[in-house]
C-alpha cells in the first residue's frame, strides 16, 4: 500500500499554503459576520417595531434568503450582476456581498426574536421610571437581548465559516482549492494523496468550528 498523502502534506510549503487557504475562508466569514451583526441589529430593531410595510418586506427578504441556496446567490451576484450592470466585481467582494446578504437576514431575525422575547413590562417599567426611548433601549432592553444574542451569533459565525467552502466555485483559492492544487501537483509521485489531504481539510474545518460552537453552547447554557 502506498502512502496516503501525509508526506505530500509536509513537503515544501504545502501545509502552510493549506493554512493560508483556511485563513482566506475565515477572513471572508469574519468580515461578513461583522457587517451582518452591524446591519442585522438595525434590521432587527426595525422589525420589532410596528411598521407593517417594513415587516412585510422583511418577511419576503427572509424567505428569499431561507429558500435560495448560497451557491445560487453566489452565482447570481458573481456572474449575473456583473453581466447585467457591467461592473467588475472581484470574487472576494461577491462572496462578502452574498454572505452579508444572508447574514443580515438571519441576524435581523435573531435580533427581532430576542427583542420580542423581552416581556413588555420591561419597556413599561423603564418608561414609568422616566427613561427616554433611547435610554430604555440602551440601559434596559439591549443588555438583556445581548445575552440571548451572543451565543446565537457565534453559531452564525461557524455556519458562515462552513459555507465559505462554496466560494471555491467562483474562483477563490481557499483551503479546498489549495488542497486540489496540492493533489494535482503530486499526482505522479503520490497518487493516493487525495486521502490524506482531504482528510486534513476535513479536520482543519472541524478544529476551527468545533471550539467556536462549543463556546456558543457553553454561553447558551450559562446565560440562559
Amino acid at each position: 500500500m502506498q502512502s496516503l498523502g501525509l508526506d505530500v502534506l509536509f513537503k515544501g510549503k504545502n501545509f502552510v499554503r493549506l493554512l493560508g487557504g483556511l485563513w482566506v475562508a475565515v477572513r471572508i466569514s469574519l468580515i461578513s459576520v461583522a457587517i451582518s451583526i452591524a446591519l442585522g441589529l438595525i434590521m432587527g430593531m426595525l422589525m420589532a417595531g410596528k411598521n407593517r410595510v417594513l415587516k412585510a418586506m422583511f418577511r419576503v427578504y427572509l424567505e428569499i434568503v431561507r429558500i435560495m441556496p448560497q451557491m445560487v446567490l453566489l452565482f447570481v451576484v458573481y456572474f449575473g450582476t456583473t453581466r447585467v450592470f457591467g461592473w467588475n466585481l472581484s470574487p472576494e467582494a461577491s462572496a462578502i456581498i452574498v454572505f452579508s446578504f444572508w447574514g443580515v437576514a438571519e441576524m435581523g431575525d435573531l435580533v427581532r426574536g430576542a427583542l420580542v422575547s423581552i416581556p413588555r413590562i420591561q419597556y413599561e417599567s423603564a418608561e414609568a421610571l422616566g427613561l427616554t426611548t433611547a435610554q430604555v433601549y440602551l440601559y434596559v432592553i439591549l443588555p438583556q437581548t445581548f445575552r440571548r444574542l451572543v451565543p446565537l451569533s457565534i453559531n452564525l459565525i461557524t455556519r458562515m465559516i462552513k459555507t465559505t467552502s462554496l466560494v471555491m466555485m467562483i474562483g477563490i483559492v481557499e483551503v479546498l482549492k489549495v488542497a486540489q492544487q496540492i493533489i494535482e501537483a503530486n499526482r505522479r509521485t503520490s497518487p493516493n494523496a487525495a486521502f490524506g489531504v482531504f482528510a486534513t481539510v476535513f479536520l482543519l474545518y472541524f478544529l476551527i468550528c468545533w471550539p467556536i460552537s462549543r463556546l456558543a453552547g457553553y454561553l447558551e447554557k450559562r446565560w440562559a
Binding site: 462552513k162 482531504f198 481539510v201 460552537s213
Partner: peptide
C-alpha cells in the same frame, strides 16, 4: 462542524 462540500470531497475523492 464541517461543511457538506468537504464531506462530499472526502467521500468521493478520498
Amino acid at each position: 462542524n464541517t461543511p457538506l462540500l468537504v464531506q462530499l470531497f472526502f467521500l468521493y475523492f478520498a
